[in-house]
Computed example of a mutant assay.
Amino acid sequence: MFGKLSHALNRSPSHNKHTHAESNPHGEGITGVYFSNWSIYERNHFPTDIDWQWVNHLYYAFLSIDTNTGSVSFSDTWADVEVPLPSPLDPSKKVHGLVAQLRQIKQLHPQLKIMFSIGGWGYDHTFEAITHDARKLDTFASQCAKLVIEHGFDGVDIDWEYPKTAAQGQLYCRLLETLREKFCEISPSLLITAAVPGSEEYIRHLDVKRMDNSLDYWNVMCYDFTGYSWSQKTGFHSNLFGANGDTDLCADVALKSYGSRGVAANKLMLGMPLYGRKFGGVEVPGIGQSFDKQKFSDEGIIEYAKLPLNHSKEVFDPRKVGAYCYDPTTKTLVTYDNVDSAKVKAVQVSSRGLAGGFYWDSAGDKHGELIRTFSEMLRHSNSTSTH
């Protein structure tokens, strides 16, 4: 089953001039997670809530871009650099802002890599705007380097969702190359990652081979494969294998796509969700069933911490590697990753020689349950495979 995939993913591309700084920290693989700066409000979630013994890469989301100048800045200055927070080094003292708190956490956990994540959903136009102007692009790269060095972080994560044409894909390459050149002038050890699509609809617009020369890791977003606002049938939104509701999307296909384009296995990160996708008006529980698009006024998203739903039974599909629960009283079905998903995906990451996995986003976990399960199983699997 995995013969062709293994061959594709484990090739070491000769065109890649940039050698990434690390591929397997401490031999345990990477467990990464995105932290969103808006988590401190309604969700009341802070970096100190994360169990750092299980996480070695943190992506701080999101920084924003000034399309007039190319300058990079904090998107919420109160949360990022002003709000008084307990000092992780001395709880009797305060630090100002999440960035300062994370910097102290990094001092307590030297293995931790922290990245500024720039962009996010709906901000693709900001990237396109600056890549058309060499002066703006140089300002962007210089600002990225300045912020990383100033705050003691380890690099940046580019979250351009998504280039919609081949021309935009070339602009993406230009941005990454400018950034890599600037980083190399300062410190070759600074990391550049990118959160990239898991659907061929968008992957086809990327010049993957050219991008690979500048990237340390590819954070492949293997989630949101289905959703009530665009799908016609219920489906797993983060399945590892197989056809899915009314699409053929799955993580296996996404990873194959990047591997077949020359990305080495140890640069690929498997993306996983800490939230579920809801479908309302489901009369018959299961995948590939009809639902009512008018049942939700929200985004149809629910945090993993609130799953499974009340009055529901959780079902795990070991073939697709996905879970769902169904509440017969409200006729609501939710698809998501559960503990079993985390275990299987960790084993797959290890057996395929991938760099690791990451989750979006930290506030959605239930007492760190999925992150801990994935990280623990990944360490165990990697340890077993080396003996």
Rank of each mutant, 00 (worst) to 15 (best):
G356H: 10
S39L: 02
G364A: 08
E181Y: 09
K293W: 15
S350Q: 14
Y228P: 00
V55D: 06
R379A: 04
D224Q: 02
Y304H: 05
T69P: 04
T131L: 15
A254R: 04
V72K: 03
T226P: 00
H367W: 04
G155K: 01
E177A: 09
K146C: 01
I149T: 07
L215T: 00
A305D: 06
A264H: 05
R174D: 07
I186R: 10
H15R: 04
G242R: 12
F127Y: 14
H26W: 12
Y123E: 13
G368C: 03
V339A: 03
D246N: 14
W54K: 01
S381W: 03
W54D: 02
K93A: 07
G259D: 01
L102K: 04
Y336C: 03
Q289M: 15
V95P: 02
S36E: 11
P25R: 09
G97W: 00
V148N: 09
A134H: 15
I50C: 02
C173V: 12
F296Y: 14
R319I: 11
D124P: 08
R352Q: 11
K182F: 06
V263W: 06
T165Y: 00
R352T: 07
E376M: 05
D361S: 08
M211W: 09
N44G: 00
T77F: 11
R180E: 05
S187Y: 03
S12W: 09
I105M: 02
F296K: 11
R43M: 02
D133E: 15
G356W: 12
G70M: 01
T330F: 12
P197S: 09
H311E: 14
K17F: 12
L270V: 08
K164V: 09
F127Q: 12
E299Q: 15
M272H: 00
G198H: 08
K306N: 03
D224V: 01
A145N: 04
P328Y: 08
K256T: 10
K343N: 13
G286F: 01
L270W: 11
G281K: 13
I371S: 01
L215W: 04
I50A: 01
A134L: 13
T384E: 10
L240Q: 08
M221Q: 07
N68A: 15
T178G: 13
V95L: 06
S229Q: 14
D154I: 11
I65Y: 02
D138A: 15
A251T: 07
L112Y: 06
V196L: 04
I130W: 14
G227H: 06
L112K: 10
Y60P: 00
A145I: 08
G32F: 08
G119Y: 09
G245V: 08
R43W: 03
G242C: 07
L307T: 07
L58H: 04
S187Q: 05
S87A: 06
S75E: 10
Y217E: 01
S362E: 03
G70P: 14
T373I: 07
C173R: 06
Q294D: 15
L309K: 14
D76F: 07
Q111V: 11
V220Y: 10
L370W: 02
H237M: 09
E314Q: 07
F236A: 00
N10V: 05
R174K: 14
S64M: 12
S385L: 15
V99K: 01
S14F: 09
G300T: 11
C222K: 11
Y123C: 10
D159Q: 00
Y172F: 13
